[in-house]
Simulated scan of single mutants.
Amino acid sequence: MKRKTWVLVGAGILAFGGVLSLFQDDQEDTATAAPKPSATAPAKPAAEAAESATESGIPSPDAGQQAALTRALRTIDPGLVAKEERAVSRARDVCADIKGGKDAATVQRNTKSRYEGGSVPNLTDDQAADIVTAVKSSFCG
């Protein structure tokens, strides 16, 4: 009877060790995985961001220009800046169309397509034209 007990105990230890090794493998994978960006990571300095924007050929608004842009967008429709970072990214795309020499009708149509949906499901043509004006007057002149 003692022999059976020891066999069962040994089998239990082996099974428990196998389970532990599964967890240990997960921890090793996590430890060797690429580090995730920290929410508290320092932002790029303004000069570095401007340099990056210049390299891509698409202007990027500085802090004052971004504030003017978001104020103008809120005036058109508050939903346009529900996510400010996204609104600025879209504004940079509008600016790329302008700087790329696209005709006014195409710029306006693309602007409407970019900003329509989500918080602003039905953007009017007039609102799209106002967005183009806001982009031009704030940083893409």
Rank of each mutant, 00 (worst) to 15 (best):
A53T: 05
R114E: 06
V9Y: 05
Q65R: 04
N122F: 15
F23S: 06
A47N: 10
A67W: 02
Y115E: 05
I98P: 01
E55I: 07
G117Y: 01
A82T: 09
S21T: 15
T133I: 08
Q108I: 13
D93N: 14
K83R: 13
Q24C: 15
G100H: 06
G101R: 03
L69I: 00
L22H: 09
D126H: 04
V94E: 02
T40V: 08
A33L: 15
K4H: 13
F23A: 12
A31P: 00
A49Q: 04
K2S: 08
Q24V: 15
D62Y: 02
I13N: 08
S89W: 01
D29I: 14
A104V: 14
T75H: 10
A63P: 10
G101T: 02
A46W: 00
K102E: 12
R74W: 01
E116T: 12
D103Y: 03
T111V: 04
A72S: 15
S138M: 11
W6T: 04
T40N: 12
A72L: 06
A41H: 02
A91V: 00
V120R: 04
D93I: 09
A11G: 09
K2Y: 09
G10Y: 15
D125R: 13
S38M: 04
G10Q: 11
V132I: 12
C140N: 06
L14I: 14
E85A: 08
T133Q: 13
T30H: 14
T106W: 02
Q24D: 11
R74T: 07
T75I: 12
V81W: 00
G101L: 08
T70C: 00
